[in-house]
Design a protein around this nucleic acid. Structure first.
Lengths: 220, 220
DNA sequence: CTGCTTCCCGACCGATCGGTCGGTTCCAAT
DNA sequence: ATTGGAACCGACCGATCGGTCGGGAAGCAG
């Protein structure tokens, strides 16, 4: 995803020349600010500087915009599970990786994941998005269970409950994170796995980002 | 005794006799299931078994229903800050109390807090709700900062970041908690403060609920 | 130039939205 | 038996919703 599209310097002429990609970004931004149902297509058009009809030249429906957006978010999340550090190694290490990796994916695809986390299942598209999201949650819950049982001492809380709480914390990043104003994504990811696994003050040595502390592009 | 529901046959069936309170509960349930903007007044009416007009006999507008609901949620949250265990004692103990207490308030007023946490500021009422919510967050952030600095060692993460993550975890309870199906509220509250302050495996003795472990009605 | 494609617009559509209105039914108190 | 008010309803309203349609302007190839 690092390589970008054709960089076309479109001057501020009378004709903006939108493509589907940039239009999607504008639409998702408005959806997140006003809510999907609370956003009219006229508002999206105004935010993009075009008319409503033009949107329907690029997308077939409002729901399709949502579908494309949440697909991008889901792809970003599932990609975390394919990273080498998540698929191999001790259970605790893998959990640290998936927690930090999910937090990173959240910041990287922030608007799309934000939209995904807010769908309520009103349409078939939203329903499908929720199904895939639950599938992701299930895969991750198994890793928490593994890690919780890995130590000699029994886990202090029920693994399923811990999964919900930990990834509730991770997902809450979308409520406040702003890439231009907030902390470095790696710092956020480190803080998340720190608090979730070691508590507010910390007890164990964080093992996931020691390899990344000075290498912020390593896993992408 | 109080007026009961008399079965009356008027050709089509009994007349439900709603009051504003029960109608509010129905409306909030639908709002949470379909989203506030995604819910039409006709849907609320159908869920309540009455017509749209009757709703406007009890409430002046859709927005007023929202206002009453989020007010109830905010009252429940601010009441936590007035509890004795939150206002006195060592900083760490106070933080454990406020984390667990907020989690308990969430489960107690679940539908109303759920609605509160989802408002996006589209109307003056929503804007006002977000202002009060931010005020609550500020008060709580100060307690996290106190507690984080209370131990001999410096905190492992920035207190403001920790506040957002911890209360992001607490608020995420609304995403999955169902009173009839889920864990005991006290168990959830204990798990939250456990993970947030001691990590997944735990290191310190939980100090907040030792007084409540066998007394689930004690605080309210 | 013509012809084709891409991008875009103003005008318009049926459906649905939140909300209103005039009037009816029920019940408790008089 | 009458009355007053709370609860309720069917019909309706202007506005806005997501979406459609026919056509205009720009860029490129021949």
């Amino acid at each position: 995803m690092a390589g970008n599209r054709t960089l076309r310097v479109t001057g501020l002429g009378p004709r903006p020349k939108h493509d589907a990609q940039s239009l999607l970004a504008v639409a998702v931004e408005v959806f997140n600010r006003r809510g999907y149902d609370g956003t009219s297509m006229a508002e999206v058009a105004r935010a993009a500087g075009i008319t409503k009809s033009t949107i329907y030249h690029h997308f077939s429906s409002k729901e399709q915009i949502l579908r494309v957006a949440v697909t991008r978010a889901l792809d970003g999340l599932f990609a975390v599970l394919e990273e080498p550090g998540v698929k191999t190694g001790p259970a605790e290490q893998r959990l640290r990786h998936v927690v930090a990796g999910t937090a990173l994916a959240l910041t990287r695809e922030l608007p799309y994941v934000t939209l995904l986390l807010r769908v309520r299942g009103n349409t078939p598209t939203e329903e499908w998005a929720m199904v895939r999201r639950r599938e992701f949650d299930r895969l991750v819950a198994a890793m928490v269970a593994d890690a919780a049982g890995a130590r000699g001492t029994r886990p202090a809380v029920d693994p399923r409950l811990a999964t919900r709480l930990i990834f509730g914390m991770v997902n809450s990043i979308t409520e406040w994170y702003r890439p231009e104003r907030s902390e470095d994504p790696w710092q956020v990811a480190r803080a998340v796995s720190q608090i979730a696994l070691d508590g507010l003050w910390g007890s164990a040595s964080g093992g996931v980002d020691s390899q990344h502390s000075g290498d912020h592009q390593g896993a992408n």
